[in-house]
Design a protein around this nucleic acid. Sequence first.
DNA 1: CGCTAATCTTACCATCGTTAAGATCAGATC
DNA 2: GATCTGATCTTAACGATGGTAAGATTAGCG
Lengths: 196, 196
Amino acid sequence: MAPEGRYHHGDLRRAVLAAAVEAIEERGLGLLSLRDVARRAGVSHTAPVHHFGDKAGMLTALATEGFDLLAQALDPGDGETIDLVDAGVIYVQFAVDHRAHFEVMFRPDLHHPDEPALAVARDRAGDLLTNAVVAATDTPPGQQTELASVAAWSLVHGFATLWLAGALPEQIGQDLQGSARSVAKLLFSVVHRSDT
Amino acid sequence: MAPEGRYHHGDLRRAVLAAAVEAIEERGLGLLSLRDVARRAGVSHTAPVHHFGDKAGMLTALATEGFDLLAQALDPGDGETIDLVDAGVIYVQFAVDHRAHFEVMFRPDLHHPDEPALAVARDRAGDLLTNAVVAATDTPPGQQTELASVAAWSLVHGFATLWLAGALPEQIGQDLQGSARSVAKLLFSVVHRSDT
DNA sequence: CGCTAATCTTACCATCGTTAAGATCAGATC
DNA sequence: GATCTGATCTTAACGATGGTAAGATTAGCG
């Protein structure tokens, strides 16, 4: 990936983010070291500074990339809205497939709080989720819809988070796909009862 | 709290855990420093080693204490089972009131994986949640009940986690109590629809 | 009182994140 | 093609961190 022996890497920003994902998946977010990331990318430990400023900047960029990937996975394109259950399954699948991204996305204590790109990416993904709820409820957006969206998001987010934490019983983990779909089907109950 | 000027602290284990909670609430789990915790407790930076072994040991103890506190909050005593909605509200309230504990509880990458006390405390809290679901569903425990429990837990856990991450809309945060109760009421839909 | 184990401190080491200074290089301009 | 300029990367250094080793202090118990 990295051109060997060259002073200028060529695409260090991307390489650093990829190395960070690799490091987080191997040793966990808590043990992430910027120097280790730089080593994996084959550059000196201060090279990432120029692209990200500091460690928090790198994690902010990683979180932004994560929200972009999630939005991309949730967006069927052509201005259409995704089915609610499908959206739920995709959300869980994303958390599992992009564990490193997902963990960083919801750790604002590790971010630069005032990074506009992060807010933009997060809002885009959030809007796609809300749209799926609105389409499923078939009622005009309002305060009830907002609560329904929050509840729906909470359900799939909680499921994904608990699975990542290894807190779910073994049976669930053995058939994660099926369990995720079963849980996602409950989104209908959550969304339709939330107006009572 | 700490007896001044004494060589032996007297209750350093408790003091260190309390200092860790304080430090996490102030600066976030990601920036937690063992030396800072020791400073807050008024001891040298290696004093906690004797009680916890290392940083992961301290966080494992903190997570265990968290599960114990949660179980205590969910246990009405006298062998009775708690109401499902009440349990949901209590869960969210616990996460907010004991933010530091809660965050550590679900970060197994920061724990000693084979600590028995942690597993015991976690299972006790988990059983209390499952009991509340079983009592509400009114059906014998089985695979469906397990899925219902997971879904119910996911809903409140996701809500709490998203709130802690600052990811929920402002309206929710302004009336967290009310929103938490509204979400907890949805537990009935989740639990009763999960057998279809 | 005296012994022992628990508790805590000081000294030290490798590693970490960050900053400052300088080296190297890509691309634009002439 | 030569030169200049800014972007990119490295080396060097600093304070802080987590962990280990050795020793000091003291509580509990005979």
